[in-house]
Design a protein around this nucleic acid. Structure first.
Length: 734
DNA sequence: CTACCAGTCCTTTTT
DNA sequence: GGACTGGTAG
């Protein structure tokens, strides 16, 4: 089989580059994953590299799996044992293999974000910290932010007392984690980096081994991840980085696009290849995307093109309310379905999750099946986390987070008072809660003792059982199943728990436990964790799909963030209003507006053939009606590429209401009626578009007074919200 | 220990 | 609007 068949010139060049560092600027829909996997396959097939010498890193498990699957299809090799995975997954693997050198117990557990937050709340309480002044979420952000910058508490700069407290909390938090034998996500990376930093033998070993390092979605790497990559490259191995600065939408969680230019400079990258031919969208859609993103100042520069023809223009629709917007959307979806399009080929995108409600309501009433992405994932469900907590205590009794989660669940007469005493006892001897149980007396002590006995017996009696039977024993003997049987809504939870048993069985199968171990040498491969330990890592690192169950052909609803990497025949981008998209909070952030624009760029480039963009003049937000201006992003789309389905916003003559084009399109019954909100006063009414000589276009937000005192409050978007005296201000209807 | 109510907050999110 | 938290009553 010829790997290089059907690659375009740039793709071919990227795949067959010499073994040197390279930066591949891969535009949306330009065949990025294909290039990445073909590159690996080509290096191996041509004998330049053995599978063991490859390190390929992604952000999501989904991307890693896809890469492995494609690679297996291209080459007759066993990909098991290859170092292809997520940053966190690979770091976990290294830390498990070298836990002693990393200062971790062999049974260390991984805290997910929710666990981490719980641990921080516990820490604040134990130290009598005012959680109003130091909100747990902020502490969490501070700690993670510091770790992702590669800083331990001692390395963080202290400016003032407030900041000093955060640093103290960071120190205490790390101490707590060490005591309990747990690592949060950022800790996996930082620990691994420190391990390689301090241990020259290990560093040399891995540098000798990984002759070629490939990174997906490089624009999303944070500073620590880049530092880790540099460490493994060690000034001699090549890094093949693929990314798109225009699709960097995760700066808010630490991604540093600057890594791209740093990489270019620090690795003296000779090979910069741009993949600009797009195989996904028609011309008008790409023209819209190109024109929009051209408004960003800091770009590496790239322009998408296609030979697929112009296609249909981007359709823009302005509705009076969010209810009407949803009603129109339902109509269009119905039309597409009538044309024979599958519902799953269409997506509705929005900036924030709250926007889905109105749309779901309209879809539900219209009887259109839909699926919302972004809910709770399998391993995040409460009953699953409870079951996992029992399993974690079997592995690591010092895990206080797990202990507290289930010590009284199902209820066994252990209340808050008892637990406070236990916490005091544990603190006095700096022991774990589990270990401190022995010192407790009376009825409370007996109840606690019963719990410990339960865990102990689970541990000893399941020691040689297959994983799925261990899980089954845990959910049975803990009383979880029985507890949910007595609960009204418990049936689904019981189903999920038995699904966990299945997941355990599937995990053993997929990971090949019991079968021959991966036949490669090297420290990391010899240290295979127990199935239970492996499963617990798996549960923390891969929380499962965050989507409703598949099956039915359903319309896809999701945030723009969640849509990254996906594509659809038709895409609806909704809520194009100032304050919403771009989001108002982004305007105060450094580079915030540009990130919002990149987000819009991502949204546009999801569409293959048809793209709809919509906005509503008013929308119910946080329980009250808000009147937004049309998003500036609409003005940035080129005239030739778009087609307004309604009179162009802001360009109409004499008011925007009255001659509406959506007769026949009615919002769902519960949506706010436009007639109910505006009371004409002085010719102005709430929701009306107006123009001011100095502030430009705006929308009337509220009215006050009468006669000479009459004032209107107008939202001028970028110029802010202003009160204007009608007798003085030169305000005209726009 | 559970049940209920009032008060608060509210962008995006993978690992 | 609604999800979540903290407090109090039963």
């Amino acid at each position: 089989m010829n790997l290089l068949q059907n690659l375009n010139e740039q793709q071919l060049a990227a795949v067959t580059l010499p073994n040197q560092s390279a930066l591949i600027l891969a535009g949306a829909g330009s065949g990025k994953t294909r290039v990445l996997t073909t590159r690996i396959a080509w290096l191996i097939q041509t004998g330049q590299l053995s599978p063991q010498s490859v390190l390929a890193v992604t952000f999501t498990n989904k991307a890693a799996k896809e890469m492995l699957a494609r690679l297996s299809a291209m080459l007759p090799i066993n990909t098991r044992g290859m170092w292809i995975g997520t940053f966190h997954g690979l770091c976990n693997r290294m830390l498990r293999a070298h836990h002693r050198e990393a200062g971790l117990p062999s049974t260390f557990q991984i805290l997910d974000s929710a666990d981490q937050l719980g641990a921080i709340k516990r820490l604040l309480k134990a130290n009598n910290i005012d959680d109003e002044r130091y909100p747990p979420r902020n502490v969490q952000q501070f700690i993670n932010g510091s770790k992702e910058a590669g800083l331990r508490a001692k390395d963080v700069e202290v400016n003032d007392d407030f900041n000093r407290r955060f640093v103290e909390l960071y120190t205490l938090y790390d101490a707590q984690c060490n005591r309990e034998g747990v690592c949060d996500f950022a800790e996996l990376l930082l620990r691994c980096h420190e391990l390689l930093d301090r241990n020259e033998i290990l560093r040399q070993h891995y540098q000798d081994r990984f002759r070629h390092i490939l990174v997906d979605e490089f624009q999303d790497t944070n500073r620590l991840q880049y530092a880790w990559l540099k460490q493994l490259a060690g000034g001699r191995n090549a890094i093949f980085a693929v990314g798109d600065d225009d699709q960097s939408i995760y700066a808010f969680r630490g991604a540093n696009v600057g890594n791209m230019s740093d990489f270019e400079r620090e690795f003296r990258v000779q090979n910069l290849i741009k993949l600009e031919q797009n195989y996904r969208s028609v011309g008008h859609i790409l023209n819209a995307a190109n024109a929009l993103i051209a408004n960003n100042a800091r770009r590496l520069g790239k322009e998408l093109w296609t030979d697929a023809g112009e296609g249909e223009p981007v359709r823009i629709y302005e509705a009076q309310t969010d209810g009407y917007e949803a009603a129109w959307l339902v109509d269009e979806v119905k039309g597409l379905i009538a044309e024979g399009r599958a519902r799953s080929e269409m997506a509705v995108l929005y900036r924030s999750n709250a926007q889905s409600r109105v749309i779901e309501h309209a879809l539900f009433n219209a009887g259109i099946p839909y699926r919302v992405y972004g809910g709770l994932r399998f391993f995040e469900r409460a009953e699953i986390k409870h079951a996992l907590a029992y399993l974690r205590l079997i592995e690591n009794p010092a895990d206080d987070t797990a202990f507290l989660r289930v010590v009284n669940f199902p209820p066994r007469g252990i209340g808050a008072r008892t637990l406070e005493q236990l916490a005091d006892a544990a603190r006095a001897t700096s022991a774990s809660l589990y270990a401190a149980v022995g010192g407790m007396t009376g009825k409370a002590g007996a109840n606690l003792g019963g719990f410990v006995k339960l865990i102990e017996s689970l541990r000893f009696e399941t020691v040689n059982l297959p994983l799925s039977e261990i899980v089954d024993a845990a959910i049975q003997r803990s009383g979880l199943i029985q507890h949910y049987q007595n609960e009204k809504e418990g049936q689904e939870r019981i189903e999920n728990l038995s699904e966990l048993v299945n997941a355990a069985a599937a995990f053993v199968q997929e990971e090949g436990y019991g079968a021959d171990a991966p036949g490669t040498q090297g420290e990391a491969e010899t240290a295979i964790p127990s199935p239970l330990a492996g499963f617990l890592s798996h549960a923390s690192l891969e929380a499962g799909d965050n989507q409703a169950e598949a099956g039915q052909d359903a319309l896809q609803l999701m945030t723009v963030h969640a849509a990254k990497g996906l594509e659809f025949f038709a895409v609806f981008v909704t809520g194009l209003e100032e304050g919403l998209f771009p989001h108002e909070n982004s305007l105060t952030e450094l580079d915030g507006l540009e990130e919002e624009r990149r987000l819009m760029y991502v949204a546009i480039t999801r569409a293959r053939r048809r793209l709809y963009v919509s906005l509503a003049q008013s929308r119910l937000l946080h329980g009250q009606t808000r009147y937004g201006l049309k998003s500036r992003f609409l003005d940035e789309l080129p005239e030739q590429a778009v087609k307004w389905l309604t009179p162009r916003a802001g360009a109409g003559t004499g008011g925007r209401f009255g001659q509406w084009h959506d007769a026949g399109v009615k919002p769902a019954a519960s949506a706010a009626s436009p007639a109910a909100r505006s009371q004409p006063t002085h010719g102005f009414r709430i929701g009306q578009s107006v123009r001011h000589s100095k502030f430009g276009d705006g929308v009337v937000v509220s009215l006050e007074g009468s006669g000479d005192d009459a004032r209107v409050q107008v939202n001028f978007g970028v110029h802010g919200v202003k009160w204007l005296l009608l007798a003085v201000a030169k305000l005209v209807a726009a």
